[in-house]
């Protein structure tokens, strides 16, 4: 009975067309029913095939040059985006952790690939420094998120649909701002994170979001969090401003 009911949904599931509330039952059944799992395996080829079923459009002139320019614009990132496929806010901390783990996991592999490449080409470059910077950024986020007594503060959207949390770690004197639903800033703009308290305003760095709109930002001021009681995020020109000048998109209290 349930099998027939679920079996009919397998195709829609495979192309992502089910409604959100239908998914858990389908996934639970898929774990138990070999026939449905096999049907899914057949439908899994549809998305890659459909990806080809579009009118061919020539690349705009200069596409790859612009890509290379963006890749080599080495804005020393204060923050590195961690690409997540799905915004984790709705799923509670447990699922969130799984996903954070999943996202961090590939780094072992990346390091191995890089090492092989470096050995193969004999090219030991500044990339080493780059990679360790990125790795350490992720490691710091993990450490903050894993620290005991982590407190969670809801992020308040301002003129935006952003959802998120500020995870504050007393023991590490740091915080992680996690937000989702934040569209990429306009051309030439970045998001800038500010810490305020006692009449003082300090920049905690800038970031951009990808089209996923999800971002993890490490707040780790050298002077610690003690002087500050609030955080705000504004839109600023690329490179950041010395004081908030653009529109606010979110704020939170420590």
């Amino acid at each position: 009975m349930i099998h027939e009911f679920i079996h009919e949904k397998i195709g829609a599931y495979a192309i992502g067309a089910l409604d959100r509330d239908e998914v858990p039952d389908v996934e639970a059944h898929l774990r138990e029913c070999a026939e449905c799992a096999q049907a899914l395996a057949g439908y899994r080829r549809l998305p890659p095939a459909l990806n080809l079923a579009v009118p061919d459009a020539p690349l705009p002139d200069g596409f790859s040059e612009r890509l290379v320019r963006r890749a080599t614009e080495r804005q020393r990132p204060v923050a590195m985006p961690i690409p997540f496929r799905r915004p984790p806010v709705r799923d509670g901390l447990h699922r969130y952790w799984q996903r954070l783990g999943d996202a961090l996991l590939p780094w072992g592999l990346a390091a191995a690939c890089l090492l092989v490449a470096l050995l193969a080409t004999g090219r030991i470059s500044e990339l080493n420094a780059d990679l360790s910077e990125h790795r350490s950024y992720r490691a710091q986020i993990t450490e903050v998120m894993a620290s005991p007594g982590l407190r969670t503060r809801a992020v308040e959207p301002v003129n935006s649909q952003v959802q998120g949390n500020l995870f504050v770690s007393k023991t590490r004197d740091s915080a992680v701002l996690m937000c989702t639903g934040l569209p990429p800033p306009e051309e030439g703009r970045v998001y800038q994170v500010w810490l305020t308290g006692g009449g003082k305003v300090a920049s905690a760095g800038t970031f951009k979001t990808w089209s996923s709109g999800t971002y993890y930002f490490l707040v780790h001021p050298s002077e610690g969090l003690a002087p500050y009681n609030r955080l705000r995020v504004t839109v600023e020109p690329e490179g950041g401003s010395s004081a908030p000048s653009g529109r606010d998109v979110m704020r939170a209290r420590f």
């Binding site: 992502g16 067309a17 089910l18 998914v23 899914l40 709705r90 649909q161 989702t180 639903g181």
Partner: peptide, 8 residues
């Protein structure tokens, strides 16, 4: 903005 969690 939150992607429907609609499948595989």
């Amino acid at each position: 903005s939150v992607r429907r969690d609609g499948g595989a």
